[in-house]
Design a protein around this nucleic acid. Structure first.
Lengths: 356, 356
DNA sequence: TTGTAAGCGTTATCAT
DNA sequence: ATGATAACGCTTACAA
């Protein structure tokens, strides 16, 4: 995509007709004062007499005046816009976006959302945000290659949520301790009495390596190093199906399976159920992300929350600190995840299946 | 909220430092031509020599120039922005937003998303979009009172998705035939052999009345008017719980329940399961919306699709037709819903529970 | 306290 | 084919 076009559609042309909204000049005229004074009054700036203040406010109200943000911002040469890229299919990212919105508003910033879809990849989504003259961009679940990220970070402050900070030049990162989160799950399962705990990982994603490592370390800490079993999974239900099928084929299926995320866990549960195994009776299953799905009573999945409100707040802070010059170098904020115990995990049954 | 402030945060002030992006003037200077010519070249407008075209493009590339949308739009006095309000927790609305994005892009429009959250109600969400100078606004799942909608519609073209067009003045509406959709469900269930079919409705929402009516009419068409049973429900899992509990207390529980939406259906399934009833073995349950949740293999819920892509396309067309003056009066587009049969519905079992 | 006027970066009109 | 130049609506020195 050329960087010089502002849109891929037809060239911009004037709008057919429609009445144009009132300008500050018309308000000034109606109130019988100068535009400067109107500006002062409407911005709430000091230095206007009560009489004129009232007069201006009345005139504005009467005309249905609304400040033209475009014009103000052009003059000020800043927008107070924070760009956010998100995949609107992810409930987790949706919640993050909501929280970012709130946190930004608190600090006087507006957010501009740009969708990552089949039709608009992450790179284009950021380009869109640049077109809106966002002062900083927060990317949720970013998968862009490092080189591209370093490139973007040269144009404006960039904050990544949920990605490790490796080879990322001047990019800020906010994430939760995936390593620790997965360990929390293993500890919970061992405390219930499980020893044969398998992990269905997330495949290639860098975040997957973190959780896998957390699982391995926790298993070793409980002297279960010999029982470590990692199955290749992924982030979808389908991946869970595949992995569960593999587990069922094994000589001695585990009594508990911790999955890379909730969707994957759902696939596992489904396949186990179809094979006649009850969850958690015959096998405990856990997810990750504490998504809305995990919270459904019909699913009731033990999971790990990444604390979206905190993640969001940290991301906004990182973006704005950088923007306003409070930041020294690139930051890497790591938050503690929280285990949420629900009904999909329980002690192993006495009669372990397939046990000799 | 005052209409005159452009943000509730602190007043806008200049940005500390950060290098300012190159302007068209700098490109012109670098290329040794006028700004007018640069504008012509970068917009792809005709009327520039090949030599100068190349020169300008090279200069722009070299300086890393990116057109300032704000400035362009200020001059053109139009934005080609379509505003969209959405609740990012709704998978259905998320999918709609994606499709609207695609449809709008096709026509050369960009969408601006405004979140409806606990902290920002629908009214404020629209105000935000007005601040961005959107030329038209599409509201997803709008609950605003009619008076407010008529008011907004005076400011700009307004399109509502998924709401009936009553008392709405100059507002366009795009929706699916809820009446018909619910009837499709009843027909499906009768075809399976069900006669005792209950409906758990959506409570107060206007859309709920439509579906309820569709259920009633379809029951009567199949001579099941005497068996009509409507339970007050809602749009959440919890509502489904309550309704199912009520059904279980009745003398003769139904052999099938069609719910207002997927979430509600989930609650019903959950409560039935806890009471020892199997779905669909002992009781079939259906939802509405064909959300991602319904599609999960572990849920596998028979549901009704509102065809988000079509809904989105129609909404965008309505918005733009109005904008570009192709529209005559307010429109009411009604699309046909589609039944999606899955595993939560099956023929009634031979031994009907509680049958005398 | 109030008004005048110079920009912000772009596009479009009208000369040349 | 190209270049001055006047808007677009707003903010803000600076002047009164």
């Amino acid at each position: 995509m050329s960087r010089h076009t502002r849109t891929d559609g037809p060239p911009l042309t004037e709008l057919p007709a429609r009445q144009k909204p009132p300008t500050i000049r018309e308000v000034a005229h109606a109130a019988g004062v100068s535009t400067a004074l109107v500006s002062i009054v409407l911005r709430g700036a000091p230095g206007a007499s009560e009489t004129n203040r009232a007069r201006v406010l009345a005139a504005a109200e009467q005309l249905g005046y609304r400040a033209n943000r475009t014009a103000s911002l052009m003059k000020l040469r800043r927008t107070r816009h924070l760009g956010v890229t998100l995949n609107v299919r992810s409930a987790f990212q949706g919640e993050l976006a909501e929280q970012i919105h709130a946190a930004a508003a608190q600090l006087g910033y507006q957010i501009v959302l740009s969708l990552v879809t089949a039709a608009q990849d992450e790179s284009r989504a950021v380009e869109t945000l640049l077109g809106f003259r966002c002062e900083s961009v927060i990317m949720l679940g970013c998968q862009l290659p490092e080189a591209r990220l370093r490139e973007l970070a040269r144009e404006l402050p960039l904050v990544l949520v949920g990605r490790r900070r490796v080879n990322l030049g001047n990019v800020d990162v906010v994430r939760s301790a995936d390593h620790h989160g997965q360990a929390l799950v293993v500890e919970h399962l061992t405390r219930l009495g499980h020893r044969d705990i398998a992990h269905v990982d997330g495949g290639q994603q860098p975040i997957s390596a973190q959780r896998r490592q957390g699982y391995r370390a926790a298993m070793r800490r409980h002297d279960l190093g010999a029982r470590i079993r990692v199955i290749t999974g992924g982030d979808s239900e389908r991946d869970g199906h595949r992995a569960a099928a593999e587990l069922l084929r094994s000589q001695q299926p585990p009594t508990a399976v911790c999955a890379f995320n909730d969707h994957c866990a759902l696939g596992i549960i489904d396949t186990l159920a179809k094979a006649g195994l009850r969850v958690p009776g015959d096998c405990s299953v856990t997810g990750y992300d504490n998504s809305l799905i995990a919270q459904l009573a019909a699913i009731d999945l033990t999971s790990v929350s990444q604390e979206p409100p905190l993640l969001a707040q940290s991301a906004v802070r990182a973006a704005i600190d950088r923007l306003e010059g409070h930041a020294s170098g690139p930051t890497d904020t790591v938050l503690e995840p929280r285990l949420v115990i629900r009904g999909s995990s329980s002690p192993p049954s006495r009669r372990l299946p397939h046990r000799p």
